[in-house]
């Protein structure tokens, strides 16, 4: 079939399955054909739209919804091999025996000890054995065993750290912070767990994390969401979260948090930059809730509550007197 008629049938929705296959073959036959197809596709699009039509698509929520889907729907690899050992039982047994022997010797020879990374008064960065990039805030401490990423990936955190999870080694990254655990599902996230505070907070930048204790299944947090665990009440709460579904909207429940905390949660949720004009604003306490509000409204209300105001600059918001 001539390519012109084939394209006409395709664009008109009249092409059969066989004809669609023919079209695929024609497109795949050369870059010129593919370029022509894209030109005709663009032609088809512009002849169907009016210049005054500028439909608005909700990209932000669509992206959140898509990322929730891909980070919570693991696709296992289809391929695995069945080792046919029918002819090689003796050889297999011999290799296994050898491996066990070697493993035992190695284990006895290698004493497992603990590694400590402490930041003291200045933030520090490090890369863990599994290529996880870690940014430790000041006065924070990270500990892990020397067999980290060999059989599992467990870290102990006191203080605050941001993790960009690496893919090397075995096991899923799990952070023990106080009595809570934060488990990674392929992400970038920050954990705040200072001993002096009565809370542990997790903020997710990309991907998904599980945030729980040994007795409470806790929260599953997605990108741009923040959750908190109260060490006194033993309860989890979402500080910034998106309801699921196509029309998801942002819920902010900032209850008794400092302005500094609130600012950083809002920055992550709205993907914006907020600065405080003076450091002494940071510890002001605030309790506010918002549902599906623009960031301008959130900052305006929050600032006014504290007797401050917000100014919009080119690249950031400034909270000042």
């Amino acid at each position: 079939m001539e390519s012109e008629n084939l394209l006409a049938r395709y664009f008109s929705g009249q092409a059969s399955k066989d004809e669609l296959k023919l079209l695929d073959n024609w497109i795949n036959a050369s870059p010129d054909n593919e370029a022509e197809f894209m030109r005709m596709t663009k032609l088809y699009e512009i002849t169907g739209l009016n210049e005054n039509e500028k439909p608005h698509f909700d990209y932000t929520n669509a992206k959140i919804s898509f990322e929730k889907h891909i980070y919570t729907n693991h696709k296992k690899s289809n391929s695995f091999r069945i080792f046919n050992a029918k002819r090689n039982w003796i050889a297999v047994a011999a290799v296994l025996a050898l491996l066990i022997a070697v493993g035992t010797v190695m284990k006895q020879a290698n004493q497992i000890s603990e590694v400590t990374i402490a930041s003291n008064s200045k933030p520090t960065e490090c890369i863990l054995p599994d290529n996880t990039k870690t940014a430790l805030s000041a006065n924070s401490c990270l500990k892990y065993k020397t067999d980290f990423a060999v059989t599992n990936k467990v870290l102990n955190l006191t203080g605050e750290a941001k993790f960009s999870v690496g893919k090397s080694g075995k096991g899923k990254l799990k952070i023990a912070a106080g009595e809570t655990f934060i488990e990674d599902i392929g992400t970038v996230f920050e954990v705040t767990a200072y001993e002096k505070d009565n809370y542990i907070q997790v903020k997710v930048f990309e991907g998904v994390v599980k945030f729980y204790t040994s007795t409470d299944k806790g929260l599953v947090l997605h990108a741009r969401e923040t959750g908190i665990y109260n060490k006194v009440s033993k309860k989890f709460r979402i500080l910034a979260g998106y309801k699921s579904g196509r029309n998801s909207n942002l819920q902010l429940n900032l209850d008794g948090v400092t302005l500094q905390q609130a600012v950083r949660i809002i920055e992550n949720a709205y993907q914006t930059t907020i600065k405080l004009a003076e450091d002494n604003y940071a510890d002001k306490q605030i309790t506010v809730s918002f549902s599906d509000e623009q960031v301008n409204t959130v900052l305006s209300v929050m600032s006014q509550t504290l007797g401050l105001r917000v100014e919009k600059n080119k690249d950031y918001y400034l909270i000042k007197k």
Partner: peptide, 11 residues
Amino acid sequence: YEIVSSTDANT
């Protein structure tokens, strides 16, 4: 197709 159905003319 000639009917205007602008939903967001913010260009």
